[in-house]
Design a binder for these strands. Structure first.
Lengths: 239, 239
DNA sequence: ATTTTGTAAATTGTTTACAATCTACAACAA
DNA sequence: TTGTTGTAGATTGTAAACAATTTACAAAAT
């Protein structure tokens, strides 16, 4: 049988099995559960329990733990165990600062490299944000927001930037999920910012797109801070 | 015996043993060898061989591989093995773009938060760069350069930024080590840029420090590109 | 009462053994 | 020659067994 033909025919069926070992399965499943807050921050992850739950032995689970540790989603303590990472307020602030810088670059690059279809997709997302804003569905807005920014990050066409961005956002989610942040976010205002960002991107205005995205992230941080320090005196922003 | 006293007395002796498992030992040792180019890019890392070399079994080595994979230093292929990551020219360019953005933020924050002692240390490093520049020691310059930028990254006092920065730089080293880049770097010119950066930081000029650092990184990228495309037509810069 | 000490159980760290897959290469066929 | 097939060896994937450490808690001492 022709080798090339065989390969073409079966590749798409075999690929999932070829690529995914028990380690990556465990890793992705745990990552999903952590980011979705199914396993909340601070939780101790028991090797044997997780191995049993996933139907594998401890080896692959341990390897997945190491990867998640490097990704910043869990904290590994020798002889003590691994814990879903907890992100403090000051640390979250650090994350926002870095994210703002990365989003600035995303805006600049996306304004240069985005294609028409992606702009259309962004418009669809923003439209859904409008539709959902009055029905007060913070969770769906949160998901749309993630989709919006991830699409933008991909449109920047810089794989290093994309993975750095996702790394930061994933860790930031550890904090946002633990708070009321995404319900405290001013949805109508945030949606307006998204619209302005798409406009700048579509116009190919690198500088403006970068500035708007950076400002958007810093505004999110400010909204989060305001929501967390309700009646007390605000600490003056340092930046 | 008083518990607090005992803890204080022995902690510093025990700490290294408490903290480091065979996994982290293997991880750090491999990381060192990869970044120092002792193990060059593209090399296949054999589990059994490395385990034997380090005097441990395959388990800890496999776990270290997963962490290094997440850090971007190795590529893990199921049933094939792990390989020291190779960074292409276009990928390196992506790394420089991200690094430039991160260094911009580092400059801004360091200008606000650096302390006198750190400025003094920066001056010492720059002085050493001057001294060594005429003796053509590219390797020592390379080391000083790493020290300079890492100190600056620490002075920014943002742990997220620091680890993102180090992550990018480590991976970038995979590329720079594989090329003649650091000998092609125009050392006197680069040193002048470092001086200007320290001046701006010391003056507390956030904007200028950020701009100079971003420009410094992009200039490094340009120098690298120029060195790699010697006589042929230069591809016009996209940014 | 508070602290210390000791012991058993639970949990993690590491090694070893076995199964599955890939690689190299020889033998064979077209 | 060129390509296929098959087998042996090497290598990786997974599981299980064993060792070391921590944790929980009861008993004893101050």
């Amino acid at each position: 049988m022709n080798n090339l033909l065989k390969k073409k025919l079966l590749t798409h069926l075999i690929e999932p099995l070829r690529q995914h070992s028990l380690v990556t399965l465990a890793q992705h499943e745990l990552e999903r559960r952590i980011i979705s807050d199914e396993i909340p921050a601070g939780t101790k992850l028991n090797e044997a329990d997780i191995a049993a739950a996933l139907g594998v032995s401890r080896g692959p689970v341990r390897e997945a733990f190491r990867a998640l540790g490097q990704a910043g989603l869990v904290r590994v303590e020798k002889n003590r165990g691994v814990f879903v990472r907890e992100v403090s307020l000051t640390e979250a602030s650090d994350f926002y600062e870095v994210r703002a810088a990365l989003e600035g670059l995303i805006g600049k690059l996306a304004a240069q490299r985005i294609v028409a279809d992606e702009i259309a997709q962004l418009r669809v997302i923003v439209k859904k944000m409008h539709a959902g804003s009055r029905s007060r569905k913070a969770d769906t807005y949160f998901a749309l927001n993630v989709e919006f920014h991830d699409l933008l990050a991909r449109a920047a066409r810089n794989s290093v930037l994309l993975s750095s961005y996702r790394n930061v956002v994933n860790q930031l989610d550890l904090y946002r999920r633990a708070t009321i942040s995404h319900s405290a976010d001013n949805i109508p205002l945030s949606t307006k910012e998204h619209e302005a960002i798409v406009d700048a991107i579509e116009a190919g205005d690198q500088v403006r797109a970068g500035e708007l995205l950076t400002a958007h992230v810093l505004a999110s941080r400010a909204r989060l801070r305001a929501a967390l320090a309700p009646a007390s005196q605000q600490t003056p922003a340092k930046t």
